[in-house]
Design a protein around this nucleic acid. Structure first.
Lengths: 202, 202
DNA sequence: CGATTCTTTGAAAACAGTCAATCTGTGTGG
DNA sequence: CCACACAGATTGACTGTTTTCAAAGAATCG
């Protein structure tokens, strides 16, 4: 369980407003959560497992990736503080996930088990709505991303990421960025060189 | 309104089973739908408009595309018979869509207005569930597609499409396929040449 | 038949992938 | 404290593919 005084993840604030939880309700709700600590390189889950919890990144940073047909890791997204990481398909349909989630730094996750999640959804329709809204926004964002991954050049994708998640570049090795962009580390290195040589882009 | 005897789109069968509609209810429900005919090259909607209806492709074929920063059209998906086409973000959030939907053949759409959609969802929770299930599956599929568009070579993407929607190749010009794959028509032409020369792939 | 529309081909430049080697920084153990 | 190993980043050389631009061939439709 979580200590209301101690752990105050951002999403709790949102919940207090959006889901109109009272303090008492919040306290009850927080009892349902568990803390999970991951060392750098630890996996939160691996392909083949079933995701039986929703996970909130309270501290640290993870990557979610798949292994493609050529046994190569392809990073689908990074999850930093205040993000959620999991596989909803596995969670809802109770089927093995195809994704892997690995900590890139020592990290702390907050977990709500499927069981407790479902219970909370029944008890607090507003929490259910909060969650569904999150899913919906993620869905729309994913759809938009398709057009970038389809037609964007590596350079465009790189600049977009640098703009959207600049913190990443301070925290994780570049070869992970390359994987996310769908190119080799060598190509990313040359791409960055080109960018610093041509314009005054930092 | 739709004639129950005449129009029997596939999804009606699904509804009868999944949503447990009685014949009488179905008849009422079908009254809410409208037919919209499109000539080849007509647009169902364009970027900037608000999508105020869900659309089912009863006949024909459409493409959904965006215009990217270089004023180039990028096709996100094709919608053939028994598919749905629209922009849920625009539909639910009542904001202008960024997508365009154009008929690639003379087509017939079945429309359910937002108003009637919401009414039906209230009246028949099972219809709402049917719709939500559709969205969820689409969401999961889109997520999986990200890994293909990120790390797949044009050849791999081509072969995957040829396997998943072989009908397309019988019906639409190849330059649309190229746009979907994120390459130029010339490259698709050479790619196809390579495939026929090297292996015995048809 | 003529006019679009679509597809293919050619040639040059730009770029990504691969393999191998080097360079850099970090931390560990002797 | 140094030497070493190790992970990560860069560079070079080479190959293959894509882009671009231009032009020529097909196919389709009115």
């Amino acid at each position: 369980m979580l200590n209301l005084q101690k752990a105050q993840p951002k999403f709790i604030e949102t919940l207090r407003k959006q889901a109109e939880f009272t303090d008492a309700q919040l306290e009850e709700f927080l009892k349902l959560w568990e803390v999970k600590c991951l060392k750098k390189k630890d996996h939160h889950f691996r392909a083949g497992e079933i995701c039986n919890a929703t996970a909130y990144v309270n501290k640290g940073c993870l990557r979610r990736y798949v292994i493609n047909e050529h046994d190569k890791e392809v990073i689908l997204n990074f999850a930093l503080e205040d993000w959620w990481i999991g596989d909803l398909e596995s969670f809802f349909l109770q089927k093995p996930t195809i994704y892997n989630a690995q900590a890139l730094e020592d990290s702390e996750l907050l977990l709500l088990s499927r069981e407790n999640f479902l219970k909370t959804c029944e008890q607090f329709p507003k929490y259910k709505a909060f969650h569904e809204d999150k899913i919906q926004r993620s869905h729309f964002a994913t759809l938009k991303r398709i057009s970038v991954t389809t037609s964007g050049t590596p350079e465009e994708k790189y600049l977009l990421l640098a703009q959207q998640q600049p913190q990443l570049f301070q925290r994780i090795p570049l070869h992970y960025i390359a994987s996310y962009l769908g190119i080799e580390p060598e190509s990313l290195s040359r791409l960055r060189k080109r960018l610093t040589e041509k314009p005054g882009k930092s």
